[in-house]
């Protein structure tokens, strides 16, 4: 039980990181980006590629399975994922913006998600890969609870990232502009905000968070080209639970989904774990479609 709780929080924190990026882009760019989860895959694999190119030039840090190279690889992955997001926006989403059927852009993101996944498969192959071959020993923290040092790192890193993002959104002009754009794009422009610039930064932030989530996820599971595909539903569920556009909500939503997934094994066979986010999603949509923290503003209602 304790172990399941800990695992749930761990998965939940990774889902939360991905969901923050998704909720920001859904709130500000105003469409459900099906390709967001593939940025997680892309980021994870870019880090793998960067690691391979750098070679193991430093020993792992302390009890962790990785060292400085992985941190550098994570930064490189964030940059490359941001570039991918900006490129997709430039080539696909922007030209489709304002087309008659609003859902065209959502659908195009569905097509893009397939392309990204297949390109990763083509470059890196379909078999499972790891960042490191170092075997880690789980540390017993409490009776019945063992945690890998890497998992502690993931948790700590997520907390730091969420707090920094919070300060960024609350304290900086760009953060303010992003919040304004999420509420009312026209009024934001009237206020002298160049929304194209803000949108570009939104992509960069969303993509970087996705890349970080991908690398952290890759530390705790095997890398496969399908990791993003399997995370898509949990991400959407987390975003909708927390209310679209709500960063704090996405974090809580991510934790709820992560915990529900890992605790579900006590009720249903583990092979149905992937359906848990869907069940939660249905319940939320039936009971409270604006999400837990959603206001009437970004109302699920149209």
């Amino acid at each position: 039980m304790l172990q399941a709780l800990a695992d749930g929080i761990l998965t939940g924190s990774i889902i939360a990181l991905g969901a923050i990026g998704l909720t920001l882009t859904m709130g500000i760019l105003r469409f459900a980006n099906f390709a967001h989860a593939e940025m997680i895959t892309w980021g994870a694999y870019m880090a793998l590629g960067a690691l391979a190119l750098m070679g193991p030039f430093m020993a792992p840090l302390g009890a962790l399975s990785f060292g400085l190279p992985l941190i550098i690889a994570m930064v490189i992955a964030a940059v490359l994922t941001s570039l991918l997001a900006l490129m997709i926006d430039h080539l696909v989403f922007r030209p489709l913006h304002g087309r008659p059927n609003d859902m065209t852009i959502v659908f195009s993101s569905f097509g893009v998600s397939l392309l990204v996944r297949m390109v990763v498969l083509l470059i890196f192959g379909g078999s499972a890969q790891y960042y490191s071959n170092t075997l880690q020993i789980a540390v017993p923290v409490a009776p019945g609870l063992r945690i890998l040092p890497d998992q502690l790192f993931v948790l700590g890193f997520t907390i730091v990232t969420v707090i920094s993002l919070h300060f960024f959104l609350q304290r900086t002009r760009l953060g303010l502009a992003m919040r304004a754009l999420a509420e009312n794009p026209t009024l934001a422009r009237v206020n002298g905000i160049d929304t194209r610039v803000v949108i570009r930064w939104t992509w960069v932030i969303g993509a970087s968070l996705a890349a970080v989530a991908g690398v952290l996820y890759g530390l705790t599971v095997q890398l496969r080209p399908e990791i993003g595909f399997h995370l898509l539903l949990p991400l959407f569920a987390a975003v909708i639970i927390g209310g679209v556009g709500n960063v704090f909500g996405a974090v809580v939503g991510g934790l709820i989904v992560g915990l529900a997934e890992s605790l579900s094994v006590f009720i249903i066979p583990p092979s149905y774990k992937l359906a848990v986010p869907f069940i939660i999603l249905l319940i939320v949509l039936y009971v409270r479609p604006t999400g837990i923290f959603g206001s009437a503003h970004h109302a699920g209602a149209k």
Binding site: F31, A32, F34, D102, M103, V106, F107, F110, L232, L233, F236, A237, I240, S271, Y272, L274, A275, P277, F278, I279, L281, L282, L285, Y286, P289, G300, A301, K302
Partner: peptide
């Protein structure tokens, strides 16, 4: 569950049910 909501919710829910059905 979704048709009274934002249009994209239907997309997300249909994606979800397909995954569940596959499981």
């Amino acid at each position: 569950a979704t048709l009274r909501l934002r249009e994209e919710y239907l997309a997300i829910a249909t994606f979800g049910i397909a995954i569940s059905i596959q499981l």
